[in-house]
Amino acid sequence: MFEFNQYNIAPWGYEIVIYFFLIGMAAMTFIYAAAPAVFGGIFGGVAGKAMQPFQKTGMIAALILLLISGPLLIADLGQPSRFLFPIIYFHWTSPLSWGSLFLPLFGLSIVGYLFALINGKTDWLKPLGIIGSLLAVSMPLYTGLDLMVHQGRELWSNPTIPVLFVILSISSGTALVAVLHLATGKLNDQALEVLYWFLYVALAATLVLFLAELVVLNYGSAEKRQAWQVINTEFGFEYWVLTFLIGIIAPLLLIVKPKLGRNPKVLVLAAVLSAVGAYSFRAVLIYAGQLGQLYY
C-alpha cells in the first residue's frame, strides 16, 4: 500500500524537560529559603522559624539551579546568540516572552536576596523575598502556559497544565530542600513538619490532577483519545510506572501514616520519589503532545 506523508516536529526534547524541571525546583527552593522574610509570623511563624537556618543554603541552591537551567534554555535555541530578542522585541501574547523577562528578574531577586542576607541589610529581605517569590511562582506557571496556549495540541491545551506544573515544582523543590536539610543536618522537627505538609498537599494535588488528566483524555475529543493512545503505547512505562506508581502512589503511601511520614529518612525518600514523578510527568506530557501532530 502506497502512502506518503511529510513529517515536521517541534521537537521540544529533553533539554526543555530538564529546563522545566530545574526551573520549577529553583522556584520552590527560593520560596522555602525566603519564607522567614516573606511569611515571618504568618501561620504561627512555623514556616519562618523552620527555614531560618536554610536561607543562605537555599538561595545558593536556587542560584546554582538557575545558572544551569538558563544556559540550557539558551543552548536549546537554534539561534542562541539571539537569546535577548524575546525581551528586545517583546510580544505580550507570548508566554515565552514573559518567561524570558521574568527569568533574569528572578535571577536578580536571588542575587539581591543573597547580597542583603550577607551584608545584613534586613530591611531589603521582605520586599526582595515577596517580589522574588512572585517571580518564582511565575516560572513553573509560564512553562505550563507555554504549553497551554497551543490550541492545536489538545494534550497541552488544558487549563490544568500551568497549575499542574506549579504543583510539580512544589514536589521537586521540596525534594531538594529535604535532601539539603538532611545533608547539612538541619532537618529539625519544625523543618520536618513544614516539608511534610508541603509534600503531602503537593502529592495529593498531583494525584487529583493525574486523575483529572485521565478523565479528560478518555472522555475528550478524538484528538484527546489519540493522545491517550500515544501515551499508553509510546510512554506507558514513563506514565504508569515512573509517574503514577513511583512518583505519586509510592511517596503518598510512605507519608500517609503521619508517624512514618515524619521520619526524616522516609520523608526524604518520599520527596525524592515525588521529584522523579515530577520529571517524568512533564516529560510524558511534552513528548506525547508533539506526536499526534507528527502524523497529521
Binding site: G78, Q79, D146
Partner: peptide, 15 residues
C-alpha cells in the same frame, strides 16, 4: 528575528 525556539512549530495545528 527568529530565535528558533520552535514555539510556532508547536503552535501550528497544520504541521
Amino acid at each position: 528575528r527568529c530565535i528558533t525556539c520552535r514555539t510556532c512549530i508547536a503552535a501550528c495545528p497544520y504541521n
